[in-house]
């Protein structure tokens, strides 16, 4: 039985990796899926491949563009699930971090989640809904060169818990997924040495698959998790143990 029939799912950062896997899985579960990403070209290519996919090009760091997206969404009939998956990881030694790096990473990884969640919560409040934020095990685990990414994702987890508390009365659930090392292009920025060390540290001795993270998102999006809110769930092969 399909688990997301009659549900509208918006996936921010859906053009590749984990977001793409989520879009594919949720379409197969009967959802109306709206893929959102910065690149119109990538989205159009995706829409050619995934027949029923709806797309909306949006740079979430341009906050003035967020409201028009939700006005459009309101006319489409509303929203049941918002997945905040967009993220930037640019490893840098602490002494090499510039203001621009901070602004860009925090704008994408954390600040945009505020207006996105505000609008989404209002659209969901009549019948409830689920907001799923994609964090990282690095929110809780220190690794060299990841101060910016780690701090921004720690903010995502704090936001998740606070929003869960504020929105529980409106039947809007807010949870976070904290992936470990997942086999996506985000790992392209890591050196071979760092990647080898990471693999050595993972008890299950392999990278995770985007499809495995998508399965967790499906659970949090579906009614099967209807009594779960404010939680951060790691999916990392035991890396955070």
């Amino acid at each position: 039985m399909q688990r997301l029939v009659n549900k509208t799912v918006v996936i921010i950062g859906a053009s590749q990796g984990i977001g793409l896997a989520m879009a594919e899985l949720m379409l197969s579960e009967g959802a109306k899926v709206i893929a959102v990403a910065r690149s119109k070209d990538k989205l159009e290519q995706l829409a050619q491949r995934l027949e029923k996919l709806d797309i909306y090009p949006l740079d979430i760091t341009q906050t003035d563009n967020i409201k028009p997206f939700f006005v459009w969404l309101q006319k489409q009939g509303g929203l049941d699930v918002l997945i905040n998956n967009a993220g930037i990881m640019e490893p840098k030694g602490f002494g090499f971090i510039k203001s621009d790096n901070l602004q860009q990473s925090f704008a994408t990884n954390l600040f945009a989640l505020f207006p996105l969640s505000q609008f989404a919560a209002r659209l969901m409040s009549k019948k409830g809904g689920s907001i799923i934020n994609v964090s990282s095990v690095l929110a809780q685990k220190a690794t060299l060169g990841q101060a910016v990414y780690s701090a921004s994702k720690a903010g995502v987890e704090a936001l998740t818990k606070n929003l869960a508390l504020e929105l529980a009365g409106q039947k809007v659930r807010v949870n976070a997924i904290a992936p470990g090392s997942i086999d996506t292009s985000l790992l392209d920025n890591l050196t071979e040495q760092t990647l080898a060390q990471t693999l050595a540290d993972i008890p299950m001795q392999r990278l995770g698959l985007p499809q495995e993270v998508a399965q967790l998102a499906l659970f949090l999006a579906s009614n099967e998790s209807q009594y779960i809110t404010g939680q951060v769930i790691a999916i990392d092969g035991g890396w955070s143990l």
Binding site: Q74, A121, R122, L123, S125, K126, E166, G169, Q170
Partner: peptide, 11 residues
């Protein structure tokens, strides 16, 4: 909390 419920209903 009620304010946000009100806003959502107005919208």
């Amino acid at each position: 909390t009620a304010h946000m419920v009100l806003i959502a209903q107005l919208e």
